[in-house]
Design a protein around this nucleic acid. Structure first.
Lengths: 248, 248
DNA sequence: GAACTTTGTGTACATTGTACACCAATAAAC
DNA sequence: GTTTATTGGTGTACAATGTACACAAAGTTC
């Protein structure tokens, strides 16, 4: 195992989204610290998945490394949603105490690059070695305590996600390889916080020739089985349109 | 004058766009270095407007500071388009020689945050003290020599610009307060590299209630004078629509 | 086989996009 | 002051897309 030198004032934070066919979730890491003597709980909240970058890796690699550590997966969809360098990012007493505790000292000035990650929930089983990592419904985040400016980063991430999802077919990254149209619809509804008419939704999907029906159907469901579809990036790339439309 | 401590491994680069009613231009800074003895030209190319950040300023402030230095203007439209941390960003012999020459040594690892800036050409007069800063048509960039990975950053910036301009009314930042519809149309054509039908374009603009006709008309032009319009951000914010439309 | 649950389909209307051609208003030239 | 050159400004017919809306079909469970 090679030990890498970290860059003390640059880090990467990943906002990892997953979809359980009902709602959107985010992956958070528990942060816990007790007083050595009394055992009193000093810190008990959550952070995004993040770490410093190493001297010898670029930003995308750092994000990939962090996600591999948490989920065991490579090849996760990743996209930057911003760089954050506010002076007071890491300034609360708790946060300083924490950095001291985990022995990172405090660079008084850390710039972090935010990454949006979309993962297919069915491919991940958490509860690996550490159960400090778990999924939380995005609707719950507003009521949670979070470290540093991570709640702010989360909001920025979800804004970016909603913006991008309307314009690029990245939502499919949150679904398994085969999915039904109802699952797709629920996903978009969860992402955008709206609801769609079933017939109109399907009419629209029918025009997306890169969403391809398979011969396969659902099995063992207590109702009419749905047909499976798959997303083809190749077809998408070949058939994308001009989309000139500055908005009203 | 206070002297600030710089953060050696973090910088900000600004891709500054302007519009001269004919084409899009970018602001570049000349980089020149001659051999002390022979006077031979060792480096003669261009860089984006960029510098390290200071310990006591955040990223946006750094970008604002850099632009104030170049243009004399505050209140310039600014938006991040990415963070760049490739290991080989600053690696060519020329670039190393240059960093040595301007006495910055070489941090072997610099992360830069890219900012897109849109400025109203009519408000800037360059040729201040230094004439090392000047406008170049974006169409010319592909043939130019540029420092570091700045050509790459430029392409990323223009991609982001084209994406955003279709979806948010930021193009107006490139126009004077009062403008004609023909100027607006030429601007969009320059930005997107397309051309529009005049009547259809105007029909579309007519639906944007935040583009407001004024009583004023052009004067002294050798043809029918055009009406002036203005962009109202307030009206825009109040009337923006839902725009749910994941793309085909 | 009855009850339950989710799938899958079509039509009428409104809105938006697109293709296309001519007169109007001004300054400059004569 | 008449002509010329140049850009500004307008409407209509058709195609494509968005939207509102209701019911039968295919499975499982009991």
């Amino acid at each position: 195992m090679i030990s890498h030198k970290i860059v003390p004032n640059i880090s990467v934070d990943c906002v990892v989204f997953g979809f359980d066919f009902e709602k959107l979730n985010v992956l958070l890491v528990k942060r816990e610290m007790k007083d050595n003597g009394s055992g009193a709980v000093l810190i008990n909240d959550h952070t995004l998945a993040g770490y410093h970058i190493f001297e010898d890796e670029d930003l995308d690699s750092a994000a990939t490394r962090i996600l591999r550590g948490l989920t065991g997966l490579d090849n996760i969809f990743l996209e930057q949603f911003g760089a954050f360098g506010q002076l007071d990012r890491v300034s609360s007493p708790k946060d300083k105490m924490w950095l001291d505790y985990i022995n990172q000292g405090f660079a008084d000035r850390i710039v972090t690059v935010g990454y949006l990650a979309l993962i297919d929930n069915t491919k991940v089983t958490l509860t690996l070695k550490d159960r400090d990592v778990s999924w939380f419904p995005v609707s719950m985040i507003s009521d949670m305590e979070m470290a540093f400016d991570h709640k702010y980063l989360f909001y920025k991430a979800i804004e970016a996600l909603q913006r991008k999802v309307k314009v690029e077919p990245i939502a499919f990254e949150l679904l398994p390889d085969y999915f039904t149209l109802s699952q797709l619809q629920k996903l978009y509804e969860a992402l955008l916080g709206t609801s769609f008419d079933k017939r109109n939704f399907r009419k629209k999907v029918a025009q997306m020739h890169y969403v391809i029906p398979l011969k396969k159907k659902q099995q063992g469901v207590p109702h009419k089985p749905a047909q499976f579809y798959l997303f083809s990036r190749e077809v998408y790339e070949k058939t994308r349109k001009g989309r000139i439309s500055f908005i009203i």
